[in-house]
Simulated assay, not measured.
Amino acid sequence: MSGNFLTIPGDEPMQRRSRSSSLTNLISAFDTKAQSHTEGQKICAFSGQFDKSIKPTFSREEYGKPIPGSMTEIRGAEAQARVCTEMKELCEIINEYGKTPCKGLLPPELQSATKVISFGELFTIYTVISDKLVGILLRTRKHHLTYFEGEVLFQKRDDDVPVFLLMPIADIRQYCDNKALQARDQSHPCPNNSKSM
């Protein structure tokens, strides 16, 4: 058997040429991907091909962030979306079990508060659901959904500290859902399909 292995009896020369060029393009794309992977392994401290002499360079915006499109970025976005869901659940609990605050006794910055609950009561309710109350509570305060005094609240010591819900629950639901959706959309490999998941 002689001749080019890409030739098929009865093939027109034009078809052979296009088949050959598409195979060449495929091989070229594979080689480029393989070369990129090899270079990436040289700067990854956890790979067997790590090369200490090669120093990765990052811009200010890239520093401390995962490589775009990587599984690390996708897992981080999913974690951020889960945190948004947990923030919403915590606010739902405050809304359900909290009481309407007396507006006349509140300082001006808390006039928008819709519900209030003591940390001790919230801790008792929330520990049945999750053991991450303090972390999620700090996150809700960072997003201006709740307010409480002090840096961190501790069980027993801060049981009487009031925790205020600063927005109506419908607004909080919408805010948290939008944040979760944004987190998933930013790093989802197929952005058009993320809404259907």
Rank of each mutant, 00 (worst) to 15 (best):
50 F>P: 00
52 K>R: 12
52 K>G: 04
52 K>I: 01
53 S>D: 12
54 I>H: 01
54 I>G: 00
54 I>T: 06
54 I>Y: 00
55 K>E: 09
55 K>V: 12
55 K>S: 09
55 K>H: 04
55 K>D: 02
55 K>C: 01
56 P>G: 04
56 P>C: 07
57 T>K: 15
57 T>D: 11
58 F>T: 12
58 F>G: 03
59 S>P: 04
59 S>H: 05
59 S>Y: 10
59 S>M: 10
60 R>Q: 14
60 R>E: 14
60 R>F: 15
61 E>M: 10
61 E>Y: 08
62 E>L: 08
62 E>D: 14
62 E>S: 13
62 E>T: 07
62 E>H: 04
62 E>F: 09
63 Y>E: 13
64 G>Q: 11
64 G>C: 05
64 G>M: 09
64 G>S: 07
65 K>V: 06
65 K>P: 01
66 P>F: 13
66 P>D: 10
66 P>I: 04
67 I>R: 13
67 I>H: 07
67 I>Q: 12
67 I>F: 08
68 P>N: 02
69 G>Y: 07
69 G>F: 06
69 G>P: 00
70 S>K: 10
71 M>F: 14
71 M>I: 11
71 M>E: 11
72 T>D: 15
72 T>V: 11
73 E>F: 08
73 E>G: 15
74 I>C: 13
74 I>R: 15
74 I>N: 11
74 I>V: 15
75 R>K: 13
76 G>S: 14
76 G>A: 09
76 G>P: 00
76 G>R: 09
76 G>T: 06
76 G>D: 14
77 A>K: 07
77 A>E: 12
77 A>D: 14
78 E>V: 15
78 E>L: 15
80 Q>C: 01
80 Q>A: 13
81 A>W: 10
81 A>K: 08
81 A>S: 15
82 R>V: 08
82 R>T: 04
83 V>A: 12
83 V>D: 13
85 T>Q: 10
85 T>C: 06
86 E>Q: 10
86 E>M: 11
87 M>A: 06
87 M>L: 06
87 M>D: 01
88 K>V: 00
88 K>P: 00
88 K>D: 02
88 K>R: 08
89 E>N: 10
89 E>W: 08
89 E>G: 02
90 L>I: 05
91 C>L: 01
91 C>W: 03
91 C>K: 01
92 E>P: 00
92 E>T: 07
93 I>S: 03
93 I>W: 02
93 I>N: 03
93 I>C: 06
94 I>K: 04
94 I>A: 05
95 N>G: 04
95 N>A: 06
95 N>F: 02
96 E>T: 12
97 Y>W: 08
97 Y>N: 09
97 Y>I: 05
97 Y>S: 05
98 G>T: 02
98 G>W: 05
98 G>V: 02
99 K>E: 14
100 T>Y: 05
100 T>S: 12
101 P>A: 08
101 P>Q: 02
101 P>Y: 03
